[in-house]
């Protein structure tokens, strides 16, 4: 990721240099096309959010930044202006609370379980760990319906949006692979210092396995922030509504307020995008380590 120039050997035939240059130009061309494919929808979202709804769907001119204004943003806040409709800030807060709770809870609970499986000796451990491994293949979607059936009494609460996602078999597995690599001498030293299992774990192990925590935090965050299926089933009340459920309000207008949909979407994604740009290096590192460990 550094900007370092490739080292050009000084003595080369000019024809080789020319091929080189052609190759590089071609490389840039392909890169540009590819980057456009990934970036154009993002650009379209952001530019569209500043344009009148009537011009969002207008062929190629949808890309042209004309008639820019904050009207769509004003429109979103204007629509969500009372307790009856709920507020944008309220939906965002629900999303933030739920995501934070899941990320924090899953870091604590799953790392402890993984540590226990990786480093402690106790009866039944092997069988239970095998069960956990088996559970990694059950997708949440497959149990959504019976889970709804079990907890329909807790509809419209913030807690029920978070709690089913805290314990996660795959996160346990990821932590497990990291903890296996911790040298035994470190724990031994902690034990000789008189540390119990809690102190050993939280004061000795956690600090030296930070990358594991970053990985699980980022993967959990990505899965949770846009969570859609479970809230659709469990939430209707504006006080417990997370951001993804509110998008359709603007789509249902007459005529559809596509500009407001995009403005809402932009506000939904830009903070995440900003965090992502700042921590891009970590993002990449943690995703790659999930594969190497997994």
């Amino acid at each position: 990721m550094t900007m370092a120039k490739t080292m050009e050997p000084t003595r080369r035939s000019s024809s080789m240099k020319r091929t080189r240059r052609w190759q590089t130009a071609l490389h840039y061309l392909i890169l540009t096309v590819v980057a456009l494919f990934f970036f154009l929808p993002v650009y379209y979202l952001i530019v569209g959010s500043f344009r009148p709804s009537s011009e969002v769907l207008s062929g190629l001119s949808g890309f042209v930044p004309t008639n820019l204004s904050f009207d769509n943003y004003a429109g979103v806040f204007d629509h969500l202006n009372s307790d009856a409709t709920g507020y944008f800030g309220q939906f965002a807060l629900v999303s933030i609370i739920v995501t934070t709770a899941v990320v924090a809870g899953s870091l604590i609970v799953n790392s402890m379980a993984a540590y226990s499986f990786a480093r402690m000796k106790w009866r039944g451990k092997k069988v239970l760990f095998l069960l956990v491994i088996i559970l990694t293949i059950i997708p949440f979607e497959a149990v959504a319906l019976p889970l709804y059936y079990m907890f329909s009494g807790q509809r419209d609460t913030v807690v029920i949006q978070a709690i089913p996602f805290i314990a996660n078999a795959f996160s346990i597995f990821l932590f497990y692979t990291f903890f296996l690599d911790v040298p035994g001498e470190i724990e031994e030293a902690a034990r000789l210092d008189g540390a119990g299992p809690f102190r050993t774990f939280f004061q000795v192990i956690v600090p030296i396995t930070k990358p594991a925590f970053a990985t699980v935090a980022i993967l959990t965050f990505l899965a949770q922030w846009g969570s859609y299926l479970w809230p659709v089933l469990m939430v209707s009340d504006p006080t417990a509504r997370p951001l993804p459920l509110a998008i359709s309000i603007f789509q249902n207008q007459q005529p559809p307020e596509w500009g407001q949909v995009l403005a809402f979407g932009t506000m939904f994604i830009v903070p995440v995008l900003a965090v992502f740009l700042i921590f891009q290096r970590w993002f990449v590192a943690s995703i790659s380590s999930s594969a190497i460990k997994g």
Partner: peptide, 16 residues
């Protein structure tokens, strides 16, 4: 008063 998005309204009444 509480308002629900129209695509989720009938489900809200059904589920309550």
């Amino acid at each position: 008063l509480k308002l629900f998005p129209s695509d989720q309204y009938t489900k809200a009444v059904n589920s309550a």
